[in-house]
Each structure stands twice: as C-alpha cells, then as structure tokens.
Design a binder for these strands. Structure first.
Length: 231
DNA sequence: CCCTGATTCGC
DNA sequence: GCGAATCAGG
C-alpha cells in the first residue's frame, strides 16, 4: 500500500484529531501502526500526548530534550518525547479501545489553562469512575452507547443536508463523526460549534460525560458550557 | 500483558 | 521514503 495523497490526508486529519496510530492504521488498512507513526513523523506531525514522556522526575532538573543527540548508536536508550502537553483526561464516552469520535481537536484551540476540573455549578457529585453526576432532574438512566468508530452516534440535527467532509472541517463546525472514516458517506456533524469546543452543544454533551478507563488519550477542550449534559 | 508513541536503521 | 524492530512509559 502506498501513501497516496488521500491516505496521507486522512492520516493527517486523524492524527491531529487525536486518533491513535492503531486506529488510524486500522482505518487506512494495509498499514501497520508503526507505518502510521513513521509516516506521521516524516510528515512533520508528531508529538502529541504520548504515554512515553521524558525521564523527567518529580524533583530536580527538567531538561526534556526531545530529540537529544544521536551520539549513541549501538544501543541508544534515550527518553525523548514531548516536554509539555500534560496528560489531560479524555472526553471519551467509549470504553476500552474506542475513543470518542474521530474527534479532531483544533490543536491549540484551547490553551491548557482550563483543567477539566471544578467548574460546573450544576455538578453535585462525582460518581464512581469519575462520572459527573448532576441533579436528579438532569439525570438520565440509559446512556450506554458511546459511539464512534463503528456506530453512528445518532442524529444531532434532523437535517444536515450538506455533509461536512473531512476537508470541510474548520474551527467553527462540529467535528462529531457521523459514520466512520473510510466509508463513502462518512462525514461530520458540521453544526456550529459550542465556542471553545470542537463540537456543537449537543455533541459536547455526549462527549464530555464520561472518562476513559485507562490512560488519557486526548485532551479535552476547556470547560463545557455549564456542565456536562446527558443525552 | 495490554496499550501508547518515538526512534532507529536496514531496506 | 518506508516500516519492522525496538525502546520506553502508562
């Protein structure tokens, strides 16, 4: 499989969107996770919250040299990686390996100034697993599926005549995926986003309701408009 | 052990 | 340029 313009483009989008290399590889098909990572690096895209951070410790010097010096060849065991970008909780409704949508976060749309913590006045407590609980009035029983990857999230708007393609994404339209990449009818919600978020209000509600079980994947934009909602 | 991404290096 | 092998952290 060769890297055609289209494949590269998809790779870029997904990579920037926060999809993992594995997912991207799976999506593209015919390539391995390593191939995706390798290509991504060659394309210039790289870094992004990676689990492997520098050997920085708590105390002492913090001299994270991402690409240190290739002084050793025989057995280079350097520890590079992104110096900044702290691990932030992820807005993924999906369990295990299915991160939310193929979300595409506007990279630096949101400064890491706003931690996902404390903010909503409506939140009454935190449930097990980090779920934010709201008042009884806002509570809703069934909220199982969470989406992306293989299932269509549901319709946010009854009519979205014009489909927002991968190429039509910009900072103002909802990036919630409808369907999944690779399919002919794959597109994005396209609604006007909730300012500061990659999704429209409705999808923000879907995206920020649960926390991923393991390791943070992607960073969540700033605070929700007032508190998580359940739909 | 699973997962991640990063890097190296032979092709 | 490509990507398997390897590394390294969660």
């Amino acid at each position: 499989m060769s890297w055609t313009e289209e494949r590269i483009e998809t790779l870029r989008k997904l990579w920037e969107g926060g999809s993992t290399a594995s997912q991207i590889a799976e999506e593209l098909g015919g390539v391995s996770r390593n191939a995706v990572i390798g290509k991504a690096h060659r394309l210039g895209l790289k870094s992004r919250p990676s689990p492997v951070k520098s050997g920085e410790k708590k105390d002492g010097a913090k001299k994270a040299a991402k690409t240190a010096k290739p002084a050793e060849k025989p057995k280079p065991k350097e520890k590079p990686t992104a110096p900044k970008v702290e691990a932030r909780p992820a807005p993924a409704p999906a369990p295990r390996q299915a991160p939310p949508p193929v979300q595409a976060r506007p990279e630096v749309a949101a400064p890491e100034k706003a931690p996902p913590a404390g903010n909503s006045p409506k939140i009454v407590s935190v449930g097990p697993g980090g779920f934010l609980r709201q008042g009884p009035g806002d509570q809703q029983p069934p909220i199982p599926p969470a989406p992306p990857r293989r299932l269509v999230p549901a319709k946010p708007s009854p009519e979205i005549a014009d489909k927002t393609s991968l190429l039509d994404l910009n900072d103002r339209v909802c990036r919630w995926p409808m369907g999944h990449p690779g399919e002919p009818d794959f597109h994005f919600c396209g609604e006007k986003v909730n300012p500061g978020f990659p999704y429209c209000v409705e999808h923000c509600g879907r995206a920020y309701q649960a926390q991923l079980p393991r390791g943070a994947r992607r960073a969540p934009p700033p605070l929700p408009f007032g508190g998580p909602r359940v739909r």
